[in-house]
Nucleic acid binder design. Structure first.
Length: 357
RNA sequence: GCCGAGGUAGCUCAGUUGGCAGAGCACAGCCCUGAAAAGGCUGGUGUCGACAGUUCGAUUCUGUCCCUCGGCA
């Protein structure tokens, strides 16, 4: 009631302030926890846009299996960094970072608070802490290395890595072919041990002032939500979508077609196992994935956990998120530039008294 | 009631010619610098249906009982 109305800076003033301070809000969490829905509420309240940090939603034509925001979602709040390449075009964390930084700068220039939402831990880390400046995967070389593995097995490859980059070999398990080959590939390309490059980089960049919020939920409830979501995707036509993508010539071996949903349905479509088995595998693999995401996010520095109750409505979670954002912004002395066009009032215990502390 | 098969990890089962049991799935923990919804690592004490017998020792052999499934009545 006696609400201290946010002193509305002009858009120009906000633009200058944001571009200097570079605030970013990041919402992470395991798949199916309800990030997207919550984020839409939050982004609406702040009158801003959503930047998606999701390694599968970048692919055009892969909609159901990636749980991509719908046209209706997009109409409510603009979503960026989705649908940017075809499934046979290479994409990676570095590319994501480049594009995300552009989007963030654009929003800052327009005086808007960027809200990054996603479950791809590496993308988030790359965005907030940078990547070492070396080359991305060289697929020609990678295929050559794969051929060497096919011919001589992983043992030889690992032995080579022990020669050229003992530190990486020491860190990596000999069976971890993706990472072993990456390290070898970097050495062959640049003559530098990847371990050294990583050590020098050390994720020390800090391009933004970031608030990282991690959504979490009681494990068994999350697993139930995952299974429900798989059923929903099947009902929406995941099998047909997979069949269509295969028909368009996207190989089962390609990176995006190996992702959750498509991989399992492709096996069914090509007759390797019955439908029920495909569903079982998809649910299982998605549960495992969610677990890995949690492991990753637990390590994310300065992450603040927010517990989400299994059946609460997204705007309730969004209110809790908004509280943290309010505190974060006032900590940056930015509370007065908060644009809250539609005030679904959030209980605001401390921020009023603590501004400027 | 009779005949047959079986009762071993949360589930499906393997196994021990008698020496305190094991795979897959499930589940848990973890690693990660351009494929990351990818890739990789680690974790198994469970009255081996119950009771009794034989034996230095039984989950493994014998007997009785209980339960499940199938067939016959």
């Amino acid at each position: 009631m006696a609400e201290k109305t946010p002193i509305m800076m002009s858009q120009e003033e906000r633009s200058v302030t944001y571009s200097q301070i570079k605030p970013v809000v990041v919402i992470v969490g395991p798949t199916a926890i309800g990030k997207s829905r919550i984020a839409i509420h939050v982004a609406k309240a702040w009158g801003t846009e959503i930047l998606t940090a999701d390694s599968t939603q970048v692919y055009r034509g892969m909609d159901i299996g990636t749980d991509k925001p719908t046209a209706a979602d997009h109409a409510e709040v603009p979503h960026r960094l989705i649908n940017i390449v075809d499934p046979d075009q290479p994409f990676n964390a570095g590319e994501f970072r480049r594009l995300a930084v552009q989007e963030i700068e654009r929003l800052h220039r327009n005086g808007l608070l960027p809200i990054v939402v996603g479950g791809t831990g590496l993308y988030v880390r790359a965005l907030l802490s940078g990547l070492w400046p070396g080359p991305p995967v060289d697929w020609t070389l990678r295929r050559k290395l794969e051929a060497e593995v096919a011919a001589g097995g992983m043992e030889g490859m690992f032995a080579e890595l022990q020669q050229v980059d003992p530190e990486s070999a020491n860190r990596l398990h000999p069976h971890d072919r993706v990472k072993v080959l990456r390290a070898l590939e970097v050495y062959r390309q640049t003559g530098l041990p990847l371990s050294k490059a990583h050590r020098q980089h050390g994720f020390q960049e800090q391009p933004f002032q970031a608030l990282v919020l991690g959504l979490t939920m009681e494990r068994s409830a999350l697993y139930r939500r995952i299974e429900d979501r798989v059923e929903v995707e099947l009902a929406k036509g995941l099998v047909d979508e997979t069949r269509r993508l295969l028909g368009e010539g996207y190989s089962r071996q390609s990176v995006p077609m190996k992702s959750l949903g498509y991989r399992q349905m492709a096996g069914y479509i090509e007759g390797e196992y019955p439908f029920d088995e495909a569903v079982r595998r998809l649910k299982r693999d998605t549960r495992h994935f969610a677990k890995r995401q949690m492991t990753w996010f637990r390590k994310e520095p300065n992450l603040v956990w927010i517990e989400v109750a299994p059946h609460e409505s997204p705007d309730v979670g969004a209110q809790r998120v908004s509280l943290h954002i309010d505190q974060f912004m006032s900590g940056l002395h930015l509370s007065r530039v908060s644009v809250r066009p539609m005030l679904s009032r959030v209980p605001q215990a401390q921020s009023g008294s603590q501004v400027g502390a």
